[in-house]
C-alpha cells in the first residue's frame, strides 16, 4: 500500500472547497505522480451532480470524468483518485462508496463537522474488493489523519 502525499497547497484547496460545499457533499479529482508514493500536486473541483440529496450523495457527470482524464494526459499527470466530503459524518467509506468504487483508484474522504475539517482519510480497494486505508501525509511528513 502506498502513502498518499499532498502538497500543502493541494490539501488546503481541497479542504477549502469541501468546507465551502458544506452542508452538501463536495467532490473533485486529484492529480500528481505515482511512484513509490502517490504524490498529489493538484486538485480540481467538480460539481456534485446529485440535486435530490446532495447532503448525503455525490455524483460526477460522465463528461467531467472525460475532462479529468483528458486534463491528466495533457498535463503529463496521473489521475490518482477522487475526493469527496462526508458532512457531519466520519471520514470512513459508506456502503454507497464501496458500491461505486473502482480498482486502482484512491478515494479521499474528508469529514466536515459543523463546517470545519475534522478528519481526512484515503482508501483503495484491495484484491478482494474491500476498502483498505492508505496513509495520508502532507509534504512535511506530518500525518494528518490516523483514524
Amino acid at each position: 500500500m502506498k502513502e498518499v502525499r499532498f502538497t500543502d497547497q493541494a490539501i488546503e484547496e481541497m479542504h477549502k472547497h469541501l468546507v465551502a460545499s458544506y452542508p452538501h457533499e463536495g467532490c473533485g479529482f486529484f492529480y500528481g505522480k505515482i511512484g513509490d508514493r502517490k504524490e498529489v500536486v493538484e486538485i480540481r473541483e467538480v460539481e456534485n451532480q446529485n440535486k435530490t440529496n446532495p447532503e448525503r450523495i455525490f455524483e460526477i457527470a460522465p463528461i467531467d470524468y472525460v475532462k479529468a482524464e483528458r486534463y491528466a494526459i495533457e498535463n503529463d499527470l496521473d489521475l490518482i483518485g477522487v475526493y469527496h466530503s462526508h458532512p457531519d459524518h466520519p471520514a470512513v467509506p459508506s456502503p454507497t462508496d464501496l458500491k461505486f468504487a473502482q480498482p486502482n483508484f484512491s478515494y479521499v474522504i474528508v469529514s466536515i463537522v459543523k463546517g470545519e475539517v475534522a478528519a481526512t482519510s484515503s482508501w483503495t480497494l484491495n484484491e478482494s474488493n474491500k476498502f483498505i486505508q492508505e496513509p495520508v501525509f502532507d509534504n512535511v511528513e506530518k500525518q494528518i489523519t490516523n483514524l
Binding site: 450523495i57 455525490f58 455524483e59 469527496h84 462526508h86 461505486f100 473502482q102
Partner: peptide, 12 residues
C-alpha cells in the same frame, strides 16, 4: 472514444 466508470458515493 472514452470509457467512463460511474463515479459516485457519499455518506448515504
Amino acid at each position: 472514444l472514452s470509457i467512463i466508470p460511474a463515479i459516485a458515493g457519499g455518506k448515504n
